[in-house]
Design a protein around this nucleic acid. Structure first.
Lengths: 187, 187, 187, 187
DNA sequence: AATGAATGAGACTTCATTCAT
DNA sequence: TATGAATGAAGTCTCATTCAT
C-alpha cells in the first residue's frame, strides 16, 4: 500500500504538477479517502520526500553499478559514455516516474534532497577525477565547477527532448562528444 | 507603484519560492493591504506574467545588443564568449531579480513564457549557425539539439554557483572553453 | 450629473441585475471613477432609493392623472381599463427603465419603498371602492384582499410578456376582461 | 446533514435575503465552520440550486396529485378550487420554507429553475384547457396569456397576505371566485 | 486499516467607502 | 468637481490535517 501511494503521488506530480498533487487527489488514485493516507504516512511531506529520495537513490545505484562493472582499464571516453547513457535513459525511461518528479518540485522542496544529490555529484566528480589522473582529461579544468555545470545541462535533457523530438541516444551521444572535444571545427 | 509591486513579488519568489508569494506577502512588502494590489493589477497572474516577460525580454535585449555591437569580423570564439558572459552576468546580477524568477515557477506557469523563450533560443541558434557558416564550428553538430542542451546547462548556473562559490566570470570562462574545445587532454 | 448617474445605475440594474450594479460599474457608464460618485450621492443606498422612488412616483402620477382626467360619469369598466392600460404600458415602456428596476431588487431593498407602494395601492383601492359605490362592482368582494392580489398579477406582467410574446395591449385587455367577468363560459 | 444545511440556507434566504445567505452564515446555523460545508456540497450554487428545485418539485408533485385524485367528472370550478388551494397553502405552509425561497433570489439565479417552472405552468395550462374542452371555460380566452398572468398573481400571495392579515383560505377563495366570475356586480 | 466529518488557516478576489490632492 | 490610491470587511473556496468510530 505504501508503495502504491508513492506511485500515485509521483504519477500526479509528473503529469499535472506539484500543485495538483493534493492528498485528496493521491487518495482518489489509490481508491481511498484522504484521511486514510495518514495511516501510512505521517504527512504529505513524508510522501514527497520519500519519492524524491527513491528517485536519486535509484539513479545513484544505477550509475554507480554501471561504472563499477566496466573493466578497470576501460578508456575514459567509454566510462563517460556509459555513465551519461545510464543517466539519461534513467531520466527518460517510461517506468521511471520517480526521476521525473524532481523537475516539478518547488525549489524549497528540492533543497531537501541536497545531501543525496551532492553524493551523486561526487560520483561524477570521481569519474572525471579518474580521467584527470589517467591524463585523459585536461588537468587545467576545475572539476568543482565543471561537474555542476555539466549535470545542470544533463538534467534539463528530458525537458528539451520533448521539444526537439530527439531520442535519448542521440542526446547522450551529443553530450559526450561535446564534453570531450567541444564544438570547434578540427583542422 | 506598479514597479514596486513587481519588485516585491519577484523578491519573494526568488527568496522564498512561488508558494510563498501570496498577495498578502507582496502587499506587506510594499506596505499595503492585499486588496489594494488589485488597483494596480487585475490578478495575481497578471503580476507573475509581467515579471516573467520582463525577465526574458531584458535578457534577450541584452544578449542581442551585445552580439550586434561586436565587429562583424569578430571570431566566433569571441562572439560566443561575449554572449555567454552577458547571459550569465544577467542571471546573476544582484539587481536582476526578474531573471531568477523563472527557475522558481511551477511548470504550468513556466509554459506561459514559452514563446518568448523560444525566441531567445533562436538567438543562440543563429549565433552558432554563424559559427558553422564561417567554418569555425564543426558542421557535424546538430544545432537543434545542442542549443537546448547548452542553454539548459547555462540556466542552472546560478543554482550551482551558490554551492561552489565560483565567480560568474569563472563559470563563464569554463562554459565557453568546454563548449569550444571539450575537456579532453590535448596532446 | 445626478440624473445621469441615476440613469446609469437603473440601466445596469435592469440589464444585468442588482448584483452587477457596483459603484465602479455605474461610474464607468458615466465616464467617471467610483470615488467621484460620492460627490453627488452620500452612498450607494441613496442612489438605489432615489431610483426606486422615482419609479413608483412616476407610476403613481401617471395613473392618478389618467383617472382624474376621465369624465366623472365614466363607467367603471372604462376607468379600470384606462388605469390598467397606463399601469402596464408604464411598466413596459421602453424609456421607462426606472420602473423595471423594482423587479430586480432584493426584497430587503424593495421593502424601503413600501410606504410609497402602499400609497399607490390605495389609488387602486379607491378606484375599486368607487365601483362598489356605484354598484358596478360586487359589494361582496373584500377589497383589502383583492387589490394586492390583482396588483401582484399586474406586476409580473413584463416578466411573462417576454415569455409569451404578447403585446401590452393584449395583456391589458385580458387583465381587464378577466377581472371584470371571470373566465367562466357565459350561457 | 445535507438536509440540515439546505434547511439552514433556505431559512436564511427567506428571513434575511439572498445576500445575507453567506457560507459563514449557513455554517453558523448548523454549528459548523464555512469550509466544512464543502464536504457536503461542491459549491454554494449547488446548495441554492438544490433548494430551488426541491421547492418547485414539491409544489408540482402536490398540485399534480391533488388534481389526479379528483373524480374525473368533477366540475371545473372544483378542480380549479382544489388546485389553487393546494398551491397557496403550499406557498404559505409553515414548514415549507423551500417554496418561499424563489421570491428572494436574484433574477440570474431564478433563471436556473426555468425549465421546471415551465413544466409547472403547463400543469395549469392543462387544467384550464380541460375547462375549455368541457365548455366550462370561455373558449375566447387565450390561455398562453392567462396562465402566466394568473400564476403571477398567485405567487405574490404570501407577500401580500402578510400585509393584509388574511388567511390562506380566504385568499384562495377570492382568487378562485374572481378568476371564475370576475368582480362585476351580477344583476 | 480505513472513513466520514470537521476544522483552521489561509488563498484570491470584490466592493463600498474614504480622503488628500 | 473629480481622481488616484488605499482600506477593511467580507465572500467563496481549497487544503493538510485530525480523530472518533
Amino acid at each position: 500500500m505504501r508503495g502504491e501511494i508513492l506511485d500515485a503521488a509521483a504519477e500526479i506530480i509528473v503529469r499535472k504538477g506539484y500543485d495538483a498533487c493534493t492528498m485528496r487527489a493521491v487518495a482518489a488514485l489509490v481508491d481511498m479517502k484522504a484521511g486514510s493516507l495518514y495511516y501510512h504516512f505521517k504527512s504529505k511531506d513524508e510522501i514527497v520526500e520519500e519519492i524524491l529520495n527513491q528517485g536519486i537513490e535509484t539513479l545513484y545505484a544505477r550509475v554507480a553499478e554501471t561504472i563499477r562493472n566496466l573493466p578497470q582499464e576501460a578508456p575514459f571516453a567509454d566510462r563517460l559514455s556509459a555513465a551519461v547513457g545510464v543517466h539519461i535513459s534513467s531520466l527518460v525511461g517510461k517506468d521511471q516516474k520517480y526521476m521525473h518528479v524532481y523537475e516539478h518540485l518547488p525549489p524549497i522542496i528540492k533543497r531537501r534532497s541536497r545531501k543525496m544529490r551532492e553524493t551523486y555529484a561526487q560520483l561524477w566528480h570521481d569519474l572525471l577525477a579518474g580521467g584527470v589522473a589517467s591524463r585523459e582529461v585536461d588537468a587545467g579544468i576545475d572539476l568543482r565547477l565543471l561537474v555542476p555545470y555539466f549535470l545542470g545541462g544533463l538534467n534539463r535533457v528530458p525537458e528539451w527532448m520533448r521539444a526537439s523530438g530527439a531520442s535519448s541516444d542521440q542526446v547522450a551521444a551529443l553530450a559526450v562528444a561535446t564534453l570531450l572535444d567541444g564544438i570547434s571545427a578540427k583542422q
